[in-house]
Structures are given as structure tokens and as C-alpha cells.
């Protein structure tokens, strides 16, 4: 499942008015992180890749965006081992997951 609707509903209930801000922050920070990640992969900077993937993994998990979180986890793991053969492929996957999640968030919330 692309996004966990239950998690998001719970967050919305708890956060009330702050929920819209949370979504806005996630999307705006997410855009920056995806761009930074793209740059890091193009320069094969495994340390930056690892750090950005880690952050994006955490924040997406907290919003219940599990597919994105999972692909970030795989990339973080590879970067930590300095094996960047699949990095470009994983980056494409992350971007596609991120775009889909963004769409779903904007549509549903």
C-alpha cells in the first residue's frame, strides 16, 4: 500500500489544525531532500546518500508512507556499505514513490 490511511487519519485526529502544516512541511522538505538525494547519487557521495535516505526514511515512516520508507531503507543500507551499483535505480524508485505519495496526500488530505 502506498500510504497507510489509518496512520494518517490518527495523525490528523491528534494534530488537528497542525496536520495541514505537517503535510506542507513533509512535501516542501521532501522536495528538497529528493533534489539533494539526486545530486548525491549523481556525484556518488555515499555519505550524503546515506544521511538523506535515513532522514527521509524516518519522516515518511512517521506519516505512514511505508513504500517510500522501505525504498529509502534499502538505499541507506547500500550507501552505508558503499555499494552504489543500484543507486540510480533505487533513486528512480524513491522519486516515483515520493511523487505518488505526494499525489495521494494532496488528493486525500
Amino acid at each position: 500500500m502506498l500510504v497507510d490511511i489509518d496512520t494518517l487519519n490518527e495523525l490528523k485526529e491528534i494534530m488537528g489544525d497542525d496536520f495541514d502544516e505537517l503535510i506542507a512541511i513533509f512535501i516542501s522538505d521532501g522536495n528538497t531532500q529528493v533534489e539533494n538525494l539526486r545530486l548525491a547519487v549523481s556525484t556518488s557521495n555515499s555519505e550524503d546518500i546515506r544521511r538523506i535516505a535515513h532522514t527521509l526514511k524516518g519522516s515518511s515512516a512517521n506519516l505512514g508512507i511505508n513504500t517510500l520508507s522501505e525504498s529509502c531503507r534499502v538505499l541507506e543500507h547500500k550507501a552505508a556499505e558503499d555499494s552504489l551499483e543500484d543507486a540510480q535505480e533505487l533513486l528512480e524508485q524513491i522519486i516515483s514513490n515520493y511523487e505518488a505519495a505526494k499525489e495521494a496526500l494532496e488528493e486525500k488530505f
Binding site: I14, M15, E21, L22, S59, L63
Partner: peptide
């Protein structure tokens, strides 16, 4: 360092 995380945690704790 992640704003979204701070926001979520803060909301939980304030609640």
C-alpha cells in the same frame, strides 16, 4: 533535525 518529526512528536506529547 527533521521538522516533520518534531511536529508529530510535539503534537503527541502536548496531547
Amino acid at each position: 533535525d527533521d521538522r516533520a518529526n518534531r511536529l508529530i512528536l510535539s503534537a503527541y506529547l502536548k496531547k
